[in-house]
Amino acid sequence: MNVKAIDAAGLTKTFASRGTQVRAVRGLDLQVHPGELVAFLGPNGAGKSTSLRLLTTLLKPSEGVATVSGYDIRTDPAAVRGRIGYIGQLNSAGHNQRVRDEVVMQGRFYGLPRARAAQRAEALLETLELGRVSKRMVSSLSGGQRRRLDIAMGLVHAPPLLFLDEPSTGLDPQSRANLWRHILKLRDEFETTVFMTTHYLDEADEFAERVLVMDHGRVIADDTPAGLKSTLIGDRVTLEFGSAQEATNALPRLRGYASGNGREGPTRRDTRVELPVPDAARRLPELILELARDGAAPWSAETRRPTLDDVFFGLTGRTLRESGTVGDTGETAEPREEAE
């Protein structure tokens, strides 16, 4: 299959909010090939969810074009819907419905014959450990159980392209692992393309083959997790000195080692100095020997692989956590669409 799973150009979404125009997504260009697992990473309000809602036809773009599974999201949204799975941030099931009924009905919505839908529902409820509650009312489920039900509902038709909007938020570690096992199995069996948003860095780090970092409605980086980490910043080295003065004395020497794409040099806090160093494990002995020759040997040295949090910091100068300026409601609430 040559058709790209997702092909978007200049996708833009503008909301009107209290008389001002808010550009939630600004010119998203994106190509995703069949079978890829792509993670969309960014703080709340960065435009991740809005992008996902554009691609899943829940919102109409203000500008730009996109095809999803080969169909135009503007002119043929219904065809797109039949070929994707979507697990949103909210709960999918009706609260007064029974668990199993909802999964079966979901399969029927996608055109599965009754027996096949029932069979799929049975299998999914079992895998997601919802078999015991399958006859219960949705409103009586715990948060984690509801999330797993959302996932069952999104997977019932075995979609070739799956969108997940912060799928593991609210799940305990065991359920998270379980969810991932399921998604990865789905990829192995059906070569499902997975496109997800997350703000769990470790999740993107561990599972995604490609990470898009989004900030203020734009994609600011697009690479493999390893690629992002090695090109943008090196490993992190932390050195502890006997005194603040010694630490300061060591700084000129350390500047030469910092991977510095101009952005980051060593930073000193009291007696500690932290700096990014490419391939740190290999270079650390040499670095310490040089410091010793200068008469500024550190007391202790530690290297750490960078996290995507470091990457985000390297890209924006802010950490993911402190970036949630818009707040959680920014993306889930339905802002009024601009008049078109």
Binding site: L58, A93, F109, Y110
Partner: peptide
């Protein structure tokens, strides 16, 4: 409206139903 709050309504908008 309740379904709009919980997300169940959104779910029905993204399935291939007219």
């Amino acid at each position: 409206q309740f379904d709009m709050h919980t997300g169940a309504h959104e779910r029905t908008l993204v399935v291939p139903l007219r």
